[in-house]
Design a protein around this nucleic acid. Structure first.
Length: 343
DNA sequence: TTGCGCCCTATTAATAAATC
DNA sequence: GATTTATTAATAGGGCGCAA
């Protein structure tokens, strides 16, 4: 029995053809208006835009993708809990505001599957934030799609662009600041897994400055998995130990807040019993109960530059740019000089 | 099951038409 | 005649229908 052919699905979607017909111009003319391409009169542009508005036309990303552009960027964040990533996101958004590009986000500590998914969906370029992938893998990805990494210090050659803050300098600034305020026995709270190049650089900076300040004997790095419970256990052990440090440099604000919480629970005064410094200068540093000294690495600027670079890559730039932003310390109560009547 | 050809939608190179 | 503006035809990757 002959099966009746299914009725041809009538696409409700308005296409460039419908717009062209309505405006009385060619589809190519509409395409040019869409892309702000050269060779379109003001008059024609107005006509086309009026028709697009009237018909509610939206360009179809997949169809644009066939010709090489979807005007979509993929952002991959390692997690959503750290408010620092919101600063980066704000920067990316403000850079894209005046462009046709839209950013789509994904969240995964191991970006590999998400990278594939975004390439499958024909994203024009990717911005990876704090990627933990092997350098090899990043380079291989960069061969397939324009790529910019924020927070990746390994030398990538020309394969992809990087945007970083000077993490070694940031850590040095912390040590210098604490020394200036009278703290010499400074421990560092770091992360064990996954160990990104960012963590590594902060540890290097901490060690280098401690050595330069003749305090190499005090160098003490505590590494905990980036899980609230594990951090609390590690901090508690450190603060309860016989040779408790005078100050604790935490590799992110998020860890510093954990440290503040544990210190408070133990009845320790901040900064008289233990000074605490974070990194990222996230909004919660300003809250009175935290008053956390931190390093500002301007997440917004990092995001803004990354977005600019990836669009440049998409437009054909092949040589790499490696931007480094200078961090600055923002002092608050958590690291003020200790009260004079302390021993 | 395989393979051909068409369709989907938007862009672009080549070309034609309009304007100064 | 030169320059600007708009059109036509070719094209992209993958899904789908149809014939072999």
């Amino acid at each position: 029995m002959k099966r009746t052919a299914p009725a041809k699905k009538k696409t409700a979607r308005v296409t460039i053809r419908d717009v062209a017909k309505d405006a009385g111009v060619s589809v190519a003319a509409v395409s040019k208006v869409l892309r702000d391409a050269y060779g379109v009169s003001e008059n024609l542009s107005l006509k086309v835009r009026a028709s697009m508005k009237k018909l509610g036309y939206r360009p179809l990303a997949s169809a644009r993708g066939m010709r090489g552009r979807t005007y979509t960027l993929g952002l991959i964040f390692p997690d959503l809990r750290n408010p620092f990533f919101a600063d980066i996101y704000a920067g990316i958004n403000s850079a894209l505001e005046r462009t046709q590009y839209q950013a789509m986000q994904g969240v995964s500590p191991t970006a590999t599957a998400l990278i594939e998914a975004m390439i499958d969906r024909q994203m024009d370029g990717l911005i990876l934030i704090g990627p933990n992938e092997e350098l090899e893998m990043l380079i291989e990805t960069a061969e397939r799609t324009p790529l910019v990494a924020i927070g990746q210090h390994d030398s990538s050659g020309d394969a992809f662009d990087t945007v970083n803050n000077d993490d070694k300098l940031g850590a040095r600034l912390v040590v210098q600041h604490l020394m200036k305020n009278g703290f010499r026995n400074i421990a560092m709270l770091s992360v064990s897994e996954p160990a990104s190049t960012v963590v590594h650089h902060r540890e290097l900076g901490y060690c280098a400055e401690m050595t330069d300040q003749q305090c190499a004997d005090f160098i003490h790095i505590v590494r905990a998995p980036q899980v609230a419970r594990d951090v609390q256990v590690a901090v508690r052990r450190l603060l309860e130990s016989k040779n408790r440090p005078e100050a604790l440099f935490c590799w992110t604000d998020l860890m510093a807040f954990e440290a503040i919480s544990v210190a408070t629970e133990l009845g320790l005064g901040i900064p008289d019993d233990i000074a605490i410094v974070g990194y990222d200068n996230t909004i919660f540093c300003d809250f009175a109960q935290n008053a956390l000294t931190s390093v500002d690495q301007s997440g917004e600027l990092l995001g803004l530059q990354a977005a600019r670079l990836v669009v440049e890559r998409i437009n054909g730039r092949t040589n790499a740019e490696h931007l480094v932003i200078t961090p600055r310390i923002v002092a608050r109560n958590s690291s003020h000089p200790r009260s004079p009547h302390q021993d």
